[in-house]
Design a protein around this nucleic acid. Structure first.
Lengths: 231, 231
DNA sequence: CCGCCTTCTCGTCGGCGTGAGGCTATCGGG
DNA sequence: CCCGATAGCCTCACGCCGACGAGAAGGCGG
């Protein structure tokens, strides 16, 4: 064993889609360093915890009532960040974790100290959190291609259009609704139709679906379409 | 900052293909715990090092003369492992790294303390290295699908058949040589033909290629073919 | 009540990549 | 000298995908 020891933290990239935009959960730091800067939510690993335990605990703590979301959400490890000097307090290794949640109805988690912000507007985070966030977003974008994780951004019951808007928000592209419908409805185990339909909106009432048991997408959903200037 | 500190190590999953089999570099432990057990090569992160620095340094140290391989090889982070109790000496977080190298000509790196062994025959490694190895192998298999990394297993100049045998060894499948040839030669930037051909073998002398600048494979190479009982 | 608009859903067509397989080129060896 | 083996090219059929047309089914304003 060696004498050079690390403090080990877990930092969360909590993503959700609200108002057709990919948002990330940030907290405003109350202490130094980086006081009053935005940062990814996170905390230190406790003696009896594995890394995933810490991530799950932090997710529940930081998203508060969104515990339900944690149940139907997704949590995976991103990677380790341990550059010397990344934390002025000393040697800190941070494990990035990626969490995908359905949009919480409307109220901000806990007022001004935490908020979901559009990832497009986010920069200048504390520590190396810009890098961790970028890696998390890229991971999420890649995973939508070959998994059914897009549905984790949706409420328990959703329409094909809801799902398409998730892809469009995360990838910042436009997808043909007709081809998208054919793709997702023809993939076995992706979407399970429910008996109900949506009423009250404009146009023909859409079918409601639930998540199916499928997790992989063969063949994958391709995203070469031109990135549209979403501004 | 907290009082519960971790020792941080980097463990390497060094893969190569020799004799049409996927092999992994292992070292025999000389100290307790797990004395005389096989383990992944690795070491602790030094005060001035980032994780990738440690991985690169260990790779050069452990593969010895294969420094050349490190240049043309591939090194990427796999993930962090920090379950309580994974190391009886105390709290140790290990970052797994995946390295892909061309086959070193023939001599074993350093005699009996280190050796390349077929991954199929490997189990019962020290610590949780079985898990890290499994994750590394799965990552390598997945990456061959949508990147040109298979060529990192090959010497600087190689034939299409050499490349195909890499895929077959890593995936443990059989691939149609003609369709494979069409696929890899029609992907822009994957293979660059050289002026020379191979002589002395049986059959028509094959064309020699070098790696091209392409890193991604669009569309990806699919591996649904039946896994063949390679035993 | 009747168009008209919006959105959902299904169909059609052509292009492309892939699996399957035929055929030729070019070597070593019996 | 023929034969087997390997390399490399070509063709064909099928399925998936992008582009697009058209019908289905609701709301809304005149």
């Amino acid at each position: 064993m060696r004498g050079n020891l690390f403090a080990v933290a877990v930092d969360l990239v909590v993503l959700t889609v609200r108002h057709d935009q990919l948002n990330v959960l940030l907290v405003r730091r109350a202490e130094r360093p980086y006081e009053s800067h935005w940062a990814l939510p996170g905390g230190f690993v406790r003696p009896d915890e594995d890394l995933g335990d810490t991530a799950a605990r932090e997710l529940v703590e930081q998203t508060g009532a969104a515990t339900q979301g944690a149940v139907q959400g997704h949590l995976e490890q991103l990677g380790g960040y341990a550059a010397p000097g990344r934390d002025p307090r000393g040697r800190v290794l941070s494990m990035g974790y990626l969490a995908l949640l359905p949009d919480v109805p409307d109220p901000e988690p806990t007022g001004a100290t935490a908020a979901f912000l559009p990832v497009e507007d986010v920069y200048g985070l504390a520590f190396d959190h810009d890098t961790i966030l970028a890696n998390g977003v890229e991971r999420a974008r890649a995973k939508l291609e070959y998994t059914t994780l897009a549905a984790t951004f949706c409420p328990p019951e959703f329409t094909v259009t809801d799902l398409r808007r998730v892809y469009e928000a995360v990838w910042r592209t436009e997808i043909d609704p007709r081809n998208f419908q054919r793709k997702v409805t023809s993939t076995p185990g992706f979407l399970i139709p429910t008996a109900t339909r949506v009423t009250g909106g404009r146009g023909r009432p859409p079918q409601l679906f639930r998540r199916g048991p499928a997790t992989a997408l063969h063949p994958p959903m391709l995203r070469e379409p031109v990135a549209v200037a979403h501004a």
